[in-house]
Computed example of a mutant assay.
Amino acid sequence: MGTRYGCNPTSVPLQFDAEEKTANCTAYGEWVLDETSGDAFDLVVTSERQSVPVQSESWDSTEEAAVEGYQDYLSRWADSGANVLVIKDPPYPGNTIDSIPDCLAENPGNAQECSGTREEWHWMDPVTTAALDMGHTRIHTVDMDGYFCADGSCPAVVGSVVTYFDASHITATYLERPILQALRH
């Protein structure tokens, strides 16, 4: 279907650096909702990190407003007959590390220096919160944190595979090997 950086499926306007971006993002979200509602697809899959605050909100007050906007979109999808899967955003190393690969390069042989904990790498996930709070039969969630954090640690390297290619995006190799292989079994 397509993606646009920072345009999340929410009815609340997001705070971009120009009003035109906010308006375009809101319009794009409505278009996506229209195109994916009803029986257009077997399943609508969504996952996002709240990368900009809600318009007229601070980061401290964004989560509550964002949950409301996501609940609106999720209920509109589900009420149209669409089945929706919300994938919880994975832990966010960007809270403590600028770049996992750079950190690994600066700490050869000591990947633990580039690892974190769930608490350190926690970031708000209002779309997952919205989905869980709704309890709608057409809305489901998947939490894959267990593939990133275990025994209190979120490693930068699992086996010999680097987990993130920056401070927030999963490497294709990590997705392909450990995660997809585990899901297949």
Score class of each variant (00 low, 15 high):
88 K>V: 01
87 I>M: 07
94 G>K: 09
91 P>Y: 14
106 E>Y: 05
101 P>V: 06
27 A>D: 11
18 A>P: 02
68 E>M: 04
56 S>G: 12
63 E>N: 03
11 S>F: 08
122 H>P: 02
41 F>Q: 03
73 Y>V: 00
103 C>T: 09
123 W>A: 15
136 H>P: 03
28 Y>H: 11
125 D>W: 00
40 A>D: 09
62 T>P: 01
37 S>H: 08
58 S>I: 00
32 V>T: 05
123 W>I: 14
71 Q>M: 08
121 W>E: 08
16 F>C: 08
81 G>A: 07
10 T>W: 06
57 E>L: 00
73 Y>T: 05
21 K>L: 15
132 L>K: 13
102 D>Q: 14
113 E>V: 12
46 T>I: 10
81 G>T: 08
77 W>Q: 06
26 T>P: 05
148 F>T: 05
28 Y>P: 00
64 E>T: 04
47 S>R: 04
108 P>R: 05
83 N>Q: 15
65 A>Y: 01
34 D>L: 10
142 V>A: 15
9 P>D: 02
51 S>N: 11
62 T>V: 08
57 E>R: 10
28 Y>N: 11
73 Y>G: 02
99 S>G: 03
105 A>N: 01
54 V>N: 02
26 T>S: 15
65 A>I: 02
66 A>D: 00
150 A>K: 15
31 W>N: 13
130 A>G: 04
53 P>Y: 05
142 V>E: 13
69 G>K: 08
13 P>H: 09
91 P>G: 10
64 E>C: 01
117 T>K: 04
20 E>D: 15
147 Y>E: 13
17 D>Q: 12
52 V>R: 11
23 A>N: 14
36 T>K: 04
122 H>D: 14
63 E>G: 04
128 T>P: 02
97 I>D: 09
31 W>C: 12
24 N>W: 06
13 P>K: 11
103 C>F: 06
81 G>V: 02
125 D>Q: 06
20 E>I: 13
146 G>Y: 02
128 T>C: 03
118 R>N: 12
28 Y>A: 05
123 W>M: 14
119 E>M: 10
67 V>R: 03
30 E>G: 06
50 Q>S: 01
145 D>I: 08
91 P>W: 13
25 C>G: 09
78 A>G: 09
134 M>E: 08
127 V>D: 00
142 V>L: 15
25 C>Y: 10
99 S>Y: 08
80 S>V: 01
25 C>R: 08
59 W>G: 06
65 A>N: 00
133 D>T: 07
86 V>W: 07
46 T>H: 09
72 D>P: 02
135 G>T: 05
9 P>Y: 09
14 L>N: 09
41 F>Y: 15
62 T>R: 00
148 F>K: 09
41 F>A: 12
133 D>E: 13
48 E>Y: 15
75 S>K: 12
94 G>S: 13
19 E>R: 14
57 E>C: 01
35 E>A: 14
60 D>C: 01
126 P>K: 00
13 P>R: 11
87 I>C: 07
48 E>H: 14
96 T>C: 15
123 W>Y: 14
56 S>C: 02
93 P>I: 11
58 S>W: 02
141 T>E: 07
117 T>G: 05
143 D>V: 02
94 G>E: 08
27 A>Q: 13
44 V>L: 07
133 D>H: 01
16 F>H: 10
95 N>F: 11
143 D>Y: 04
108 P>H: 04
30 E>D: 12
116 G>M: 07
11 S>D: 14
131 A>E: 00
98 D>H: 10
42 D>V: 05
120 E>V: 10
112 Q>W: 13
